[in-house]
């Protein structure tokens, strides 16, 4: 019991050290703040704008329907 408790305590300590490590790192960033801003703006543009409005999945429906769509395209695009 005691050793289980100790390992639980150690685990919490480790987690807390990792969180502090990251928090400290982010707090001390200088140029990194600008870079993170650019990354977040970029991800927003990609996932909230480009993916939603310009890049919908072309194949629709369940697996069976997608198979049918591709099969129809591949067999009907044969050269005359």
């Amino acid at each position: 019991m005691q050793s289980g408790g100790s390992s639980g305590y150690n685990g919490t300590m480790l987690l807390s050290r990792i969180v502090r490590f990251y928090a400290d790192g982010f707090r001390r960033m200088t140029l990194g703040r600008t870079l993170w801003c650019i990354i977040l703006i970029k991800l927003f543009i990609m996932f909230a704008v480009l993916k939603v409005f310009f890049f919908p999945a072309y194949l629709q429906g369940d697996e069976q329907e997608k198979q049918q769509q591709v099969s129809a395209e591949l067999t009907e695009r044969i050269a005359p």
Binding site: M46, K51, F54, F55, P56, A57, Y58, V70, E73
Partner: peptide
């Protein structure tokens, strides 16, 4: 993204 939209086949 392009694979799924433009190059679906």
């Amino acid at each position: 993204f392009e694979f799924g939209t433009n190059w679906s086949n």
